[in-house]
Amino acid sequence: MNIFRLAGDMTHLLSILVLLLKIYATKSCSGVSRKTQELYAIVFLARYLDLFTDFISVYNTFMKIVFIASSLAIVWCIRVHPMVKRSYDKDLDTFRHYLLVAASFLLALFLHEKFTFLEIFWAFSIYLEAVAILPQLVLLQRSGNVDNLTGQYVFFLGAYRGLYILNWIYRYLTEPRFTRWIACVSGVVQTALYADFFYYYFISWKNNSKLKLPA
């Protein structure tokens, strides 16, 4: 494991912690897209089906369990916790996320490494992760103002994707047989979706002002 991969995983973990902290501290999920969180829960459940068949390292297994558990916990908070549930604004969170699920699954049926149950669900999770942030980005754009913790959550998620690209470049240069088109191409698409957000994030950071996205 190289430093970029480790840093990527850590920022991913950090983003989840920031989100949990926001929900726990404010007992509110305002500005958070429940649909994006549900998509991430599906992503992790579909990708880590190999928890039961393949063992890579204690680190991998541990992180997989953390990602599954934390994503389910976040969805549970937004759907079930009485106080958090009340702060959820479903009128802002209108993205038709089931279309993303359907399109990703269809793509996985055609584009995969092997036609096996695990491989199709793995490819599906890669495609779905690439677009899972869309409901969140649309929600932020619609609401205009972004509170600090939600902004940092999206920032760390984007940083995680950027670091994974550096990780792939590093691996491509150092590992003779490193080719994984599905993950890399989807990863680049996924990172590109953050470009707009990052642009406004850095402007607000430079001007030391509150993050605002144009309508």
């Binding site: 393949d54 890579i56 997989k64 994974y164 990780n167 994984r180």
Partner: peptide, 10 residues
Amino acid sequence: LEKILYHDEL
């Protein structure tokens, strides 16, 4: 081995 290597990322 190849399959394990392939899915070594999270």
